[in-house]
Nucleic acid binder design. Structure first.
Ligand code: ZN
Ligand code: ZN
Ligand code: ZN
Ligand code: ZN
Lengths: 419, 419
DNA sequence: AAACAAGGTCACAAGGTCAA
DNA sequence: TTGACCTTGTGACCTTGTTT
């Protein structure tokens, strides 16, 4: 049938354009801001969305720490677009704080998963920011209205929690639990779960210390949760430490005390931020998580599509989460992610024939993993596997879903990063 | 309906993946890791399980060796997912080491046999790794308990041995024998037998030298036996040699000495990798044995499932070898492996295509939403031939197995290679 | 028909350049 | 020094053809 034409046109499959993620350019698509200075980001560099300037600065500085002089302002400079060149020590510190690392870099195209993740986060951030703007600052902003808040989504996410914690544990951030538990962040769990991946990454840069001996000086002790830059750039200065220049005032006890304090302040977005580097830094259980996460995402997305009303709640603002229509596809699906009753029912899974195919379809993406994790890599990897059933159960739903989306006129999104 | 969906999904050229984005093949069910860098493998490429990056790298590099500059670290770089782009010479060397070769490629679907083999190896590796981790390094770890050790299994494998050696002979690696004989590798024969296929393949890349004249420079001298990764990962570092770039420091005596030293550094995964290329390099009697072997495998697998205790031996650690439940499937089924209890059970995913369009929302203007779609998917295959015939054996058992697994929360395993 | 891998395409990031 | 721009090359996707 139709496909045929697809076949006929080899490339036109492309018509739809691959998702492009463009940060900035202005307009469209995904706009991301430099996590260091706030200017529109040019791309994802050394583990974080940054502008060309911060990218170059970090690249140069990383290999030439001697060129950085001590801060004259007690290392309390707030980096922004205008003053970013005023204090190199603080700029570098900020770079590290947002997770930049030479060791974790990656090349190549970003997976769609990554792009989606970024998108979602962005939405969240915006929502959060909006809420904060109109709300009070002292009290935590109400959770933004989007699929992430959707109960079903959260439900789905919940299962991931553990993995996330595990990751943290591995990293030595037990305290993370506490912080995450804090109500400040909107539905921490939910966020964590989906963002969990990133959280791990973010912190991972600490690990990289070994890579550049010189960098050791700038290592952050333990990272507090990294807040999102965009939201509140100032809010999150990581406790200074280690190197006097970057972290001149660091004091262990001091840090410990603030750890908790900081967390609430932390912006959710950071947590969400797309993980730093992708591929490079997977955590051990990352894979496992990846699939689950992905599934959750999809589920959430799908749900949101089905019940537009929900989303619409208050976000009439542009964000629209609404439109994010993701089509995931597992052909056959694997497991279902969904927890949703409806979906669940479908799968009888049990006796399914076993699928020996080697490539999975499922979900996990690499990048996701990458996104999240880093590190170590040690042994495990894992991943869950999943079964797939081939059953098609979902076809009907699937088709209908597709159809629906088409009807709605939602178009596929362009995830291109750059212009 | 369907056609419609075609329409809907521009991309649907992608077989199943209507998805817009697919996670990427990452890995999947059968989780295999890239034998070069350790990241989840996207499939079996050029003779080894590798990620997309290493696959592309090898493909590009093979035809353009001039682009590879000499290692600045004395050719001792340890390749991992984070640093794989840092030293092309070492990355290529590692590719060759794990058996990648342009000449040995094969296409098409892989037999379940092959898949099973991969699975088993994986288990072994994990077990071995676990053992090594907790055990001592100096002494060879005891052979992991799994079907490979099963007498019947070994018996079946044995037939291939000769062919392997023959290959080596052809390559002029008589010395291979010696090395293989070396005790370092745990139960060489037994392993060889099962791994024989692979082993043979692994080494085969040497043969390919002729294929690409330029590649000659990178030829490995003699390959030691490739041990299974799992067993004794370290055991097998191949001696550097031939081309200065790839093997600049090679020196027979030197190598001999370092053999042991290097090993530890070596990644276990390497050894296990399922054989390199398939089709192309079957040995003469391979086919004959194949069926028998297959049966043994199945038998072993089934047995292992029944008596989980066996596996459990010592690897309680995370890896978990744990859940690998292999179910062989008869007609319909492939095998399923499940690792995560919770996840697994769920549902099948729906395959809806989600629309990722981003633009909409957030930021900028909606108007332009671009479309994007993408998807991807791949396919996979195998090579061993054979099908399984019999599937029958175990239907009952199979079913019960499946059931058990469900109960346990283990899901059937999906042996699909790619997503 | 499916499942796969080779190859091709091209989104993207690291680095290098050089005018300010 | 900075950072816009360019070059190099990585790797996520996609298409094709092979094999089961
Ligand atoms: Zn910046
Ligand atoms: Zn300062
Ligand atoms: Zn790799
Ligand atoms: Zn090197």
């Amino acid at each position: 049938m139709m496909q045929t034409d697809t076949d006929l046109n080899p490339y036109n499959a492309y018509q739809n354009a691959p998702i492009i993620f463009k940060p900035h350019p202005g307009h469209n698509q995904m706009s991301q801001t430099c996590k260091v200075c706030g200017e529109p980001a040019a791309g994802f560099h050394f583990g974080a969305f940054t502008c060309e300037g911060c990218k170059s600065f970090f690249g140069r500085s990383y290999n030439n720490l001697s060129s950085i002089s001590e801060c004259k302002n007690n290392s309390e400079c707030i980096i922004n677009k205008k003053n970013r060149t005023a204090c190199k020590a603080c700029r570098l510190r900020k770079c590290l704080y947002v997770g930049m690392s030479k060791s974790g870099s990656r090349y190549g195209r970003r997976s769609n998963w990554f792009k989606i993740h970024c998108l979602l986060q962005e939405q969240q951030q915006q929502a959060a920011a909006a809420a904060a703007a109109q709300g009070n600052r002292t009290t935590p902003p109400p959770p933004p209205r989007n699929m992430f808040n959707h109960p079903s989504y959260l439900a789905g996410m919940s299962c991931r929690q553990p993995s996330r914690k595990e990751d943290l544990m591995l990293l030595g951030y037990e305290e993370y639990k506490h912080s995450s538990a804090s109500p400040a962040v909107s539905s921490p769990d939910s966020h964590n779960s989906d963002s969990s991946v990133e959280v791990g990454d973010r912190r991972n840069f600490l690990i990289r210390q070994s890579v550049n001996p010189n960098m050791a000086l700038f290592q952050l002790p333990q990272l507090p949760q990294l807040p999102f830059a965009d939201l509140n750039p100032l809010a999150m200065m990581p406790p200074p430490r280690v190197h006097q220049i970057l972290f001149p005032t660091y004091n262990a006890s001091f840090y410990a005390q603030h750890q908790s304090l900081l967390k609430p302040a932390i912006e959710p977005s950071l947590i969400n931020s797309p993980s730093s580097n992708n591929n490079n830094r997977l955590e051990p259980n990352y894979n496992k998580c990846a699939e689950e996460v992905k599934r959750y995402y999809l589920d959430a997305v799908l749900k949101s599509q089905r019940s537009p009303a929900i989303k619409r709640e208050q976000d009439e603002d542009e964000d629209d989460t609404r439109e994010i229509v993701v089509s995931m596809t597992p052909p056959r699906s694997p497991v279902a992610v969904s927890r949703s009753p409806s979906l669940a029912s479908q799968a009888p899974s049990q006796d399914n024939p076993i699928d020996l195919s080697m490539k999975a379809n499922s979900s996990t993406s690499d990048e996701m993993r990458t996104m999240s994790c880093e590190d170590s890599d040690l042994s495990d990897d894992e991943h869950e596997k999943r079964s797939s059933s081939n059953s098609e159960l979902g076809d009907d739903d699937y088709d209908s879903e597709v159809k629906r989306s088409k009807i709605n006129g939602t178009t596929p999104l362009d995830l291109t990063t750059k212009v």
